[in-house]
Design a binder for these strands. Structure first.
Length: 254
DNA sequence: ATGGCTCGTGTAACGAGA
């Protein structure tokens, strides 16, 4: 199974990019974040024409997640059953024996904001729910935009970012707690180039200068990590016209 | 210099993202 995740920053704007990328990279499963579409506006027909089934959970203006799959999708669940949340940030489904959780972790805005506290509470609730899910599903993949750079090597300029949102100790500790449930960062199962990032600021030629961060992750249960043969960030669509600020991350599971 | 781009909303700036 080829499993990918991509924060598209508006599926309305990025639908052509998604279709082109799938044509060039016919992965089995693609998880999307920040669709920014209510469910009545979701482009089901265009995605089905491309050979994918799709489930989605959206809202107006913000957030929104979707799972595209070549193979049948079953047992769809919206949100974290343990966390009351108006914001549509989690969608789970079973595909080919793999439990896929597509997640868009809150950004947090800044460490002194209410949004930061919401992020930490949200992550704690995710941990508590996934503690059960890891027991229930041996083949579990929790993928998406985590809005956390796990280590300094995942940040273009760690000194400039010390203590800031996306890299703060509390956020990194929350992510580490997820990995301590037995979920492995697929990207770090393999040797990778230095300064590998999945997001680059639109401003100040961020991509051209590689001023980015690695904040989009594929976390795999032990059973899936053992079967994982590769994990790459595809920078190509970040070079296209009117790109998302994020690049897709792709894991190959035998 | 707390901006710089890009998005949705809605049709003018502004909040939010990261």
């Amino acid at each position: 199974m080829k499993l990918a995740t991509w924060n598209v920053n508006s599926l309305k704007v990025r639908l052509p990019h998604v279709l082109q990328w799938l044509a060039e990279n016919p992965v089995d499963v693609l998880c999307l974040q920040e669709t920014k579409l209510t469910d009545d506006k979701f482009p089901i027909a265009a995605i089905e024409m491309a050979g994918y089934q799709v489930v989605f959970s959206g809202q107006k203006t913000y957030n929104g997640v979707a799972i595209l799959s070549k193979l049948p999708i079953t047992d769809v669940l919206k949100n974290n059953p343990r966390f009351q949340d108006e914001q549509q940030r989690i969608l789970s489904a079973t595909i080919d024996g793999v439990r896929v959780v597509c997640t868009y972790v809150p950004n947090g805005q800044s460490v002194d904001s209410d949004k930061y506290h919401y992020k930490l509470g949200w992550l704690a609730a995710l941990h508590d729910w996934l503690a059960d899910e890891t027991g229930t599903h041996a083949n579990l993949a929790v993928v998406g935009d985590y809005n956390i750079a796990p280590e300094d090597r995942d940040v273009h300029d760690p000194l400039a970012w010390v203590g800031q949102v996306l890299v703060s100790d509390k956020e990194r500790a929350a992510l580490k707690r997820l990995t301590q449930l037995g979920l492995h960062d697929a990207f770090r199962l393999f040797e990778q180039a230095d300064k590998s990032f999945s997001w680059w600021d639109y401003r100040q030629l961020g991509f051209q200068r590689n001023k980015g961060m690695r904040i989009d992750h594929i976390l795999l249960s032990g059973a899936l990590a053992t079967r994982c043969r590769a994990c790459v960030i595809d920078r190509a669509p970040r070079k296209w016209e009117q790109p998302s600020d994020h690049a897709p991350v792709v894991a190959t599971i035998e």
